[in-house]
């Protein structure tokens, strides 16, 4: 709880490079870390950087420490939540940003799932819609054709793939 354990230079250095670290690096964990690893890392960082752990710091050092503490909390907040973590890992893999808006991270994943389910492109959505209509009407063959069409526009769509597989299974079962 005392600053004796933390070097003033360490605070300054970390606050300088903070923007270049991703959340895993900031918490000093591997990208494969489990939820309990993440929590333990958050506790460790809090012991060092939480404002209450640095009551005797003043001026710039206190400000820097506070900034680090807030960033550590942000990292924890994103990584401990499965949906946010998925959205963040996407973003990190794309190399677009090392941070993510915590409120939007959840939605981002919901949107991605929605896109997976219904299609991310106009054509994908169109053929997926047709497949759904065929399915309701009992036209299994038509549905399979349409979802295959949808997949030509969105080859990577896991939702479409799963649907196609399921429809094929059902067709097999009938015949």
């Amino acid at each position: 709880m005392s600053t004796s354990t933390i070097d003033a230079l360490e605070i300054t250095a970390l606050s300088k490079i903070m923007d270049e670290l991703d959340y895993y690096q900031l918490l000093n964990i591997e990208p494969s870390a489990s939820t309990s690893d993440i929590r333990r890392a958050f506790h460790n960082s809090s012991r060092t950087f939480h404002p209450d752990a640095n009551l005797d710091l003043t001026g710039d050092l206190r400000k820097q420490c506070r900034q680090i503490s807030k960033r550590v909390t942000e990292a924890y907040c994103v990584l401990r939540d499965t949906r946010r973590r998925l959205a963040y890992d996407d973003k990190r893999a794309n190399g677009t940003s090392l941070r993510i808006q915590i409120a939007e991270a959840r939605n981002a994943h919901v949107e991605r799932r929605k896109a997976e389910r219904c299609g991310a492109t106009p054509q994908g959505r169109q053929f997926h819609g047709k497949a759904e209509t065929d399915l309701k009407a009992g036209n299994l063959a038509g549905a399979i054709q349409n979802i295959q069409m949808a997949l030509t526009f969105e080859a990577g769509n896991a939702g479409f793939k799963a649907m196609l597989e399921e429809l094929r299974e059902r067709k097999k079962a009938i015949s």
Binding site: H50, P51, R66, Q67, S69, K70, R71, T73, E74, Y76, C77, Q101, I102, A103, R106
Partner: peptide, 17 residues
């Protein structure tokens, strides 16, 4: 409205829009 920081987020926290 739209959320910037959701409930049960640990504090201190900061978000910039």
């Amino acid at each position: 409205t739209e959320p910037v920081i959701e409930r049960n987020t640990p504090v201190p926290i900061e978000q910039t829009r």
